[in-house]
């Protein structure tokens, strides 16, 4: 969908994920989308170098978010919102409707 603009599918998935969930890290993104960690990491670095996303260290994990200081952030958000409207229900269910609300420790799933 946005691949012609962004250059590759991995970046599209990463940006859509960060738009929906607010943050992510390379191992999680690689697990969710079934892509190699190195491929995801390479795109995260490319997006970070371009100022599109920013990274923070939490413990030993590098967490990435969309950069609120990116000059085109509202235009990018509008683009990602629009792109999500074209994502199939199956894909939304698979990738973009995961549980984010808290669950008490030890409570059975």
């Amino acid at each position: 969908m946005l691949e012609p603009l962004l250059g590759n599918k991995t970046s599209e998935k990463i940006l859509l994920y960060l738009h929906v969930y607010g943050e992510g890290y390379s191992r999680l993104l690689s697990r969710v989308f079934g892509m190699s960690v190195s491929g995801v990491y390479q795109q995260l670095r490319r997006l970070e170098d371009g100022g599109v996303i920013v990274g923070f260290s939490k413990g030993r994990t590098r967490i990435f978010k969309l950069n609120p200081r990116y000059p085109f952030r509202s235009e990018l958000a509008a683009l990602l919102r629009k792109a999500l409207q074209f994502v199939s229900e199956d894909t939304k269910e698979q990738y973009f409707r995961g549980r984010t609300r808290p669950r008490r420790t030890g409570k059975p799933v």
Binding site: D49, G51, P68, P71, R73
Partner: peptide, 8 residues
């Protein structure tokens, strides 16, 4: 990375 900006 450019452009030179302060937020938007």
């Amino acid at each position: 990375a450019p452009p030179l900006s302060i937020g938007g």
